[in-house]
Write a protein that binds this DNA or RNA. Structure first.
Length: 870
RNA sequence: GCCCGGGUGGUGAAAUUGGUAGACACAAGAGACUUAAAAUCUCUCGCUCUUUGAGUGUACGGGUUCGAUUCCCGUCCCGGGCACCA
């Protein structure tokens, strides 16, 4: 065995061995339980970032651990290859999106391979190939025929200078990122997926996901947002015709406190009122300004204008004025809300601002209502009862809602209704680098789905990207076509699909990536039945991607493609973000130029707090931004390549797993990498020193161990238990590593010179190699082969604790007096409560701090401590 | 603004079911070895004080408990998501 740890050689040899033996190949085998371990596939942005290393190392640890536990493991990898960055790169560097994407994939595949992940590369695919996206076009046409895809108007960000639709990310402070123009909302026809038809099921199934983090289930639940309320109408007359203005509320109990109604700027009533009201028309025009992102709408100043139109209160018959409010969303519910300033905080602020009446209709005993100052209890559903509400006075929330809903129903003006916050999923994108929507627009037949025999609609790869509008819309050779129904001249749809479409079913395709005649086949049943065993990915995907994937699994079931697999992901591990500081300089036009942390030196004061930063290249100051998720747009990603090259894959993997538990966010810093490398070197040396003296049989007679040796052996077997629990149940790899470090610290201190000691040393080192193998497989493979020549660590069984070695005669208990630690006692492991109490009361610490007072109470916590209350 | 997390030494963190706060590391300091450097090894390391001991300490303010980093109420700060970044 060579004396020096040389990661480059070891890693090359191990990877070659795994390649040659097909160690990561996954084949359906019904004799073993399957374990499908999936990590969220990467967008091929150019090179791996730390988040990828973290994500895929977690997946690899779990895959390799389960392999050693006897499972038939599948760990696939692919590329989420459509998306905006390819078009941005095309613009910036004048390269074709396809070529850019494929060369990124080639580079990133090399990087992934150098990290030694046990990935079955024969299942790899990229979503931008027709072989993949043809199936989503095919599915799209099926769903279109079933009415689960439909067309309606949607609101987008419009850049009036570049004449193009912008993504929310491309709108910065209400302006287009390239043109700097003020962005407007614009309504265009789009295709929608009817996810709301599955709202009830998507909500209910959350309760059947015990393997998901509670926080993710809660976020999805709130996102779907089921609420029971009352939908009712305010009757009115306009242009001589009777009409109804519909609203939805979860607070029907406060209906007697309505003092105005607010509608969205796009609401027909607002449009009608603006016809002969120039001021209102101007306000509605103003409301179009700004982007469509909800965060912007929710944080902007609430503004409104009266329409001069009055509607009739359905219960009191009073006239109530209609206002246009910039905070009312047309896309949510009916685009109109009743306003009860007394019991809704936003309405209260709005009423104060515009001097609108505030009418209290809920009271709480002992509380005083002021129409000048908002108080939390005004909106409380539980504490209050109705006042100033005629026949409803004295009723509580539920009784009031019931009575009011019944009265509205009797007047045919409303009823109870279940409403969801979830909206249908708009999938049309006015962009090039995506899957073409397979629809043909015919002047006579209307929208016609592309027939199966004309699929796939192939995305042309030789295009010119200008940043103004979609290139496909400028390519007659793409959009000119014949109607499949009537054969007449027609126009192909030039919008592409949201890239979430690709990522909503890729996990099923890994089961059968080679199938050229069907989207999925029966192999999906083997790998995915009951759900993918472990899914790992960033917490930032907690809602959209995961919800869409759940939705697709149900859609595909209902189209008859996959039977009933259940939920797609049985167990979910949401990895915390790898975050890094951001740095920037401001350009001439105020645009921020983001600088990579690797190119910046941070200046700190004597306490280590950052006081400023300079660019390495020119030594001049840069501005420190916030600490944010590593991203291309903020240029704060750190390339792991230099880390791998300098220290090797095992050090990179070990350090990533040791730095923080997987679900916690990890702030990137170089410090600590050295420590991980040092540990591996030490592990290598300990094994080397032992092997030099000759390997021995690890069989041990428990009775021939010295006390110190028995303690070490107990620690070894405790460590086996702890590490298996950390990998399997807790998924906390940092503590598993710490446990092995502790074990080796103890090993170092123990005298193992005699024959029994040599056997114990052998057992300890063999176990350490296997315990760490899932995290650092290359060195694990090499050390195990030295300790047991001819043996393959990856094919070995994970170490299992021997109950004999775990036995302990005496244990230590802490002694507290009045909850403060005052000493410790040693007692027999099976000592009874009375003798423990006696020993504690007689202990030095207890005697000193009880100062002769009698014990009022003694609490014994078995195996832990004794607390004496004096 | 709304929804979901998080906050523990100089730093990353541990404490798994309410029971020894700071395991395991990083950084720093001191020492050993060495011609020297690197590497390695040993020791110190939350804060304060009257230092063989004691007080205090898990963002902040309250509460429940024999006992709270852990549970409850309120506040502040940081991160993620908010439907066209992926």
């Amino acid at each position: 065995m060579q004396e020096k740890y040389t990661p480059a050689d070891i890693e090359r040899a191990a990877q070659q061995h795994w390649d040659e033996t097909g160690a990561a190949r996954a084949v359906e085998d019904h004799s073993k339980p399957k374990y499908y371990c999936l990590s969220m596939f990467p967008y091929p942005s150019g090179k791996l970032h730390m988040g990828h290393v973290r994500n895929y190392t977690i997946g690899d640890v779990l895959s390799r651990f389960h392999q050693m536990q006897g499972y038939n493991v599948l760990q696939p990898m692919g590329w989420d290859a459509f998306g905006m960055p390819a078009e941005n790169a095309a613009l910036a560097n004048n390269v074709a999106p396809a070529g850019w994407t494929y060369s990124n994939i080639d580079y990133m595949r090399t990087q992934l391979k150098s990290l030694g992940f046990a990935i079955d590369w024969e299942r790899e695919f990229a979503t931008c190939t027709p072989a993949y996206y043809r199936w989503e076009q095919w599915l799209f046409t099926r769903l279109y025929e079933k009415g689960l895809v439909y067309k309606k108007l949607g609101t987008v960000n419009w850049d009036p200078v570049d004449h193009t639709v912008l993504a929310n990310e491309q709108v910065i402070d209400g302006r287009g990122w390239r043109s700097g123009a003020l962005i407007e909302k614009r309504e265009i026809p789009m295709y929608y997926m009817k996810i709301t038809a599955y709202a009830e099921e998507l909500l209910a199934e959350l309760d059947n996901l015990p393997g998901w983090p509670e926080q993710v289930r809660l976020m999805q639940k709130n996102w779907i947002g089921k609420s029971t309320g009352v939908r009712f109408a305010f009757p009115y007359e306009i242009d001589g015709r009777p009409e109804k203005l519909w609203v939805f509320t979860t607070r029907a109990d406060t209906i007697m406190g309505v003092t105005f109604v607010a509608v969205a700027a796009e609401h027909p009533l607002a449009q009608r009122a603006a016809v002969n009201n120039p001021e209102l028309a101007k306000f509605i025009e103003e409301c179009k300004q700004g982007g469509v992102a909800e965060a912007d709408i929710a944080t902007m100043e609430k503004k409104g204008l009266p329409t001069g139109i009055f509607v009739t209160h359905p219960l009191t018959g009073e006239q109530v004025e209609v206002w246009v409010g910039n905070y009312v969303l047309m896309s949510y519910g009916d685009g109109a809300v009743m306003a009860v300033p007394a019991h809704d905080e936003r309405d209260f602020a709005f009423a104060l601002k515009y001097n609108l009446p505030i009418k209290q209709v809920v009271g709480v005993d002992g509380e005083f209502f002021s129409d000048q100052q908002w108080a939390e209890w005004y909106a409380d559903k539980v504490k209050g009862t109705l006042v100033n509400s005629c026949q409803y006075d004295g009723l509580g929330y539920e009784a009031a809602v019931d009575a009011i809903a019944a009265d509205l129903a009797a007047k045919n003006l409303g009823d109870k209704k279940v409403q969801f916050r979830l909206r249908d999923w708009g999938i049309s994108r006015q962009r090039y680098w995506g899957c073409p929507i397979p629809i043909i627009h015919c002047p006579t037949c209307g929208d016609v789905p592309v027939p199966d025999d004309q699929l796939p609609v192939v995305l042309p790869e030789n295009v010119e990207i200008t940043g103004a509008g979609s290139p496909l819309a400028k390519m007659p050779e793409f959009y000119e076509c014949k109607c499949p129904k009537c054969g007449g001249d027609a126009k192909r749809e030039t919008d592409t699909m949201d890239t979430f479409f690709e990522s909503s079913w890729y996990f099923l395709r890994y089961a059968c990536p080679d199938n050229t005649t069907a989207m999925v086949d029966e192999r999906v049943q083997y790998w995915c039945k009951g759900g993918i065993d472990q899914y790992i990915g960033g917490i930032e995907h907690a809602i959209l991607h995961l919800l869409y994937s759940r939705f697709f699994t149900k859609l595909m079931r209902d189209v008859g493609l996959i039977g009933d697999l259940g939920e797609p992901f049985a167990n979910l591990l949401t990895q915390g973000m790898v975050v890094a500081p951001t740095f920037y300089r401001e350009g001439e036009n105020g645009k921020k130029l983001w600088l990579n942390p690797a190119d910046v030196d941070v200046v700190t004061d004597e306490r280590g707090r950052p006081t400023g930063a300079t660019l390495k290249a020119d030594g001049l100051p840069v501005i420190i931004g916030g600490t944010e998720k590593m991203s291309k747009s903020k240029n704060n990603g750190v390339d792991p390549q230099s880390l791998i090259e300098q220290y090797g894959a095992d050090t990179a993997r070990l350090f990533m797993m040791f730095a923080a538990p997987p679900d916690q966010s990890l702030e990137w810093s170089d410090a600590g990498v050295e420590g991980a490398y040092r540990f591996l070197r030490r592990l290598w040396k300990l094994t080397h020193d032992h092997v030099q003296a000759g390997t021995v049989d690890a069989k041990i007679d428990q009775n021939s161990l010295s006390t110190a040796q028995a303690d070490l052996r107990r620690k070894l077997h405790q460590t086996m238990q702890k590490v298996a629990d950390d990998y399997g149940r807790r998924k906390q790899f940092n503590t598993a590593i710490a446990a092995v470090m502790e074990l080796l610290n103890a090993y170092d201190k123990c005298d193992l010179a005699d024959a029994t000691g040599r056997a114990l040393a052998q057992e300890t080192l063999e176990s350490a190699a296997l315990l760490l193998f899932p995290i650092v497989p290359h060195i694990g493979q090499a050390l195990y082969a030295e300790l047991k020549p001819g043996q393959d660590a990856g094919l070995s069984t994970f170490p299992k604790a021997d109950p004999e070695a775990l036995k302990q005669d005496e244990i230590e208990l802490m002694v507290q007096v009045n909850g403060k630690l005052r000493g410790a006692i040693r007692v027999a492991a099976d000592a009874d409560k009375a003798s423990i109490e006696a020993a504690a009361l007689a202990s030095e610490g207890a005697l000193k701090f009880m100062e002769g007072k009698p014990a009022k109470k003694v609490v014994v916590v078995p195996g832990r401590l004794v607390n004496i209350v004096a």
